[in-house]
Deep mutational scan, measured.
Amino acid sequence: TFELKGKVGKVVKIAEDHYLVEVEGDKWIAYSDEKLSLGDRVMVVDVDGLKLKVKRIP
């Protein structure tokens, strides 16, 4: 999972307290300090167990 840091993915689902992002064909639970929208491109900035911390990228 640490090899996911720096990888780019996209938001595929928005849940009440987390996001579902697809990175390299796999779906992961993710969270972010900013509000994300469906389809946003994101970069993995940290890995916390099986959850990814992501940030939006242009």
Rank of each mutant, 00 (worst) to 15 (best):
Y19K: 05
E22I: 03
K53S: 13
I29S: 12
D48P: 03
I57C: 04
K10L: 15
D33G: 09
G6M: 01
K35H: 05
H18G: 06
D40K: 04
T1D: 14
W28Y: 08
A15E: 12
V23M: 06
G39C: 04
D46T: 04
E34I: 07
A30K: 00
L38K: 07
D26K: 14
G25S: 11
M43E: 15
V44A: 02
D33S: 05
F2T: 11
G9I: 01
G39A: 08
G49C: 06
I14R: 09
V8M: 07
V23R: 01
H18S: 14
V21H: 00
A15I: 09
S32L: 08
V8L: 05
V47N: 03
I57L: 13
E24T: 10
K35T: 07
G39Q: 09
D26N: 15
K51A: 05
W28A: 02
V42L: 06
E24V: 06
T1G: 15
E24K: 09
I14A: 11
L4D: 03
G6P: 00
F2E: 13
L38H: 12
D33H: 13
V12L: 07
E34W: 09
K13D: 08
R41P: 13
G49M: 15
K5F: 10
D17W: 08
L52G: 01
V44E: 01
D40P: 00
V21E: 00
V45H: 08
P58M: 10
R41D: 14
R56M: 14
G9T: 04
L36S: 03
E34L: 08
G9K: 00
Y19T: 11
D33N: 09
V12Q: 13
I14W: 13
K53G: 10
W28T: 02
K35Y: 15
V45K: 07
R41G: 14
E3D: 04
E16F: 14
L20Y: 12
V47K: 04
V12S: 11
K27V: 03
L20W: 04
R41A: 04
L50A: 12
G39I: 15
K35V: 08
D48L: 10
S37R: 05
K7G: 02
L50P: 12
G25L: 12
E22Y: 02
F2I: 09
L20S: 11
Y19R: 03
D48T: 11
V8I: 11
K53C: 04
E24Q: 06
S32N: 15
D17R: 14
V8K: 11
L36K: 01
V11Y: 01
S32Q: 14
E3S: 01
G6C: 02
K10V: 09
I14N: 08
R56C: 05
Y19P: 04
I57H: 07
K5W: 09
T1Q: 11
K55M: 15
P58D: 11
I14P: 08
V54S: 01
G39S: 07
H18N: 07
S37G: 13
V47T: 06
K7D: 02
L20E: 08
K7S: 03
L50Y: 13
D48E: 13
K53P: 01
L4E: 02
W28K: 03
L50E: 08
L20I: 08
V11G: 00
G49D: 07
L52D: 00
D46K: 02
K27P: 07
V8F: 07
K13E: 11
R56G: 12
L50D: 12
G49W: 08
D40E: 11
K7Y: 02
I29K: 13
V45F: 11
M43T: 13
S32F: 05
G6Y: 01
L52V: 13
D46Q: 06
Y19H: 10
Y31N: 07
K53A: 12
K10N: 15
G9D: 00
V21S: 02
K27R: 13
E24D: 06
K51G: 14
D46Y: 04
I57E: 14
I57A: 04
G49Y: 11
S32G: 08
E34Y: 07
A30C: 04
D40W: 08
K35C: 05
A15D: 08
V44G: 01
V23P: 00
L20P: 01
K13H: 10
K7H: 03
R56V: 09
V47F: 14
V23N: 02
F2M: 12
W28C: 02
L4R: 00
I29V: 10
R41S: 08
D17Y: 06
V23G: 01
L20T: 07
K5R: 03
K53N: 15
V45G: 05
M43V: 12
K13G: 06
Y31P: 03
V47D: 02
L36I: 14
G6R: 00
K13I: 12
D26Q: 15
A30W: 00
R56I: 08
A15S: 06
I57Y: 10
R56D: 06
V11R: 00
L36E: 02
S37H: 05
K51W: 07
T1P: 14
E34C: 06
F2C: 10
K51C: 04
G9W: 01
E22G: 11
K35L: 13
K55C: 07
V21L: 07
V12T: 04
K35I: 03
D40M: 08
F2S: 13
D46W: 03
F2G: 15
V12A: 14
V12E: 09
L4M: 14
I14E: 12
V42M: 12
D40V: 10
R56Q: 06
K5Q: 07
V42K: 00
V12R: 10
G25N: 12
A15L: 09
G6K: 00
E22D: 09
G9S: 03
P58A: 12
E16Y: 09
E16L: 06
K5M: 15
I57S: 10
D17L: 12
W28H: 07
R41E: 13
V23W: 00
H18R: 12
E16Q: 15
L50T: 10
L38Y: 12
G9E: 00
E3L: 03
T1L: 05
K10F: 12
E22F: 03
V21F: 07
D40T: 09
K10M: 12
V54R: 00
I14F: 06
A30D: 00
E16W: 08
E24A: 04
V12I: 12
I14H: 13
K35D: 09
I29R: 11
I57W: 14
K27E: 04
I29F: 08
K7Q: 03
G9Y: 01
K53F: 09
G6H: 01
E34F: 09
Y19V: 06
D46S: 05
G25A: 14
G39E: 14
S32D: 13
K51F: 10
M43D: 11
A30L: 01
G49N: 15
E34G: 04
G39F: 14
K55R: 10
L50H: 13
H18F: 05
V44Y: 02
D48K: 07
V54A: 02
E3K: 01
K55Q: 14
L20M: 09
P58W: 06
V45I: 09
K5H: 15
V11K: 00
E22W: 02
W28G: 02
D17C: 05
V42N: 01
V12C: 03
G49F: 10
S37T: 10
K10C: 06
D46M: 05
V12H: 14
V21D: 00
L52Q: 01
D33M: 06
V47A: 11
D48G: 04
L50I: 08
V8Q: 13
F2A: 09
K55Y: 07
F2P: 14
D26M: 05
D33Q: 07
V11D: 00
D40Y: 12
M43R: 03
P58K: 10
E16K: 09
V23S: 01
G25C: 06
K35N: 15
V42D: 00
K10D: 14
D26P: 15
V45W: 13
V21W: 01
H18I: 07
V42F: 08
I29T: 12
K27F: 10
K13W: 05
V21N: 00
V54M: 02
G6Q: 01
E24I: 13
A15W: 09
M43W: 04
T1K: 15
A15F: 08
W28S: 02
K55L: 15
G49T: 12
L52Y: 02
G39L: 08
L20V: 09
V11L: 14
D26C: 05
T1C: 06
V54Y: 00
